[in-house]
């Protein structure tokens, strides 16, 4: 099922690229314009995705009727991917807030939170995580700030 969605998205994506490809000004007739190469690739991508899509749908029709109920499938899905989904959400929050709150604070929090999400929630573990998080945050911050002169987003805190 997911595979079909991915393929549909790919087809939509190539469609978008193809339609946008016409909007650029051509410099002159003899050369390929800025839109031609992407359009060519988009057509190829759409055709191949469509071929695979049709194949998958045929396969699915054949295999239909087996498997658990939708509710059970959903529960199994959540069980398997719970950590992936939560972690991706955490990463998103981390990235969004880096600019608002600041690199140092967010990194300290992210490492501890992510570590607790995956690992055991015991006191010893928390102590280790806090140490790791402090060392990691300040060593990257100081290295890039002082050796490579990178300015990290400082946000409202740091």
């Amino acid at each position: 099922m997911g595979e079909i969605i991915v393929l549909l998205l790919l087809i939509i994506f190539s469609g978008l690229i193809f339609m946008q490809g016409d909007e650029f000004a051509h410099l002159n007739e003899s050369q390929l314009g800025p839109g031609t190469f992407p359009q060519l690739i988009a057509v190829l991508l759409a055709v191949l995705s469509l071929v695979l899509l049709i194949r998958k749908i045929i396969d699915m029709k054949r295999a239909a009727g087996t498997g658990a109920s939708a509710g059970e499938q959903f529960r199994a899905f959540i069980h398997e991917y719970k950590l992936v989904i939560i972690m991706f959400a955490m990463l998103t929050v981390y990235i969004v807030l880096i600019d608002v709150i600041g690199f140092v604070v967010m990194t300290l929090l992210f490492v501890i939170a992510a570590g607790l999400l995956i690992g055991p929630k015991k006191r010893k573990n928390i102590v280790i995580l806090v140490c790791v998080s402090v060392v990691l945050t300040f060593s990257t911050y100081l290295f890039f700030q002082n050796v490579l002169y990178v300015r990290f987003p400082s946000g409202i805190l740091l």
Binding site: I95, I98, T107, V111, G119, T140
Partner: peptide, 25 residues
């Protein structure tokens, strides 16, 4: 080395690495 230490560290390194490339959030 336990996974729950490595995964967050590598995530942070990915974010730092990406930011440092062009200094763009």
């Amino acid at each position: 080395v336990p996974v729950h230490l490595l995964v967050p560290i590598i995530f942070v390194l990915c974010v730092v690495g990406t930011f440092v490339l062009n200094n763009r959030v």
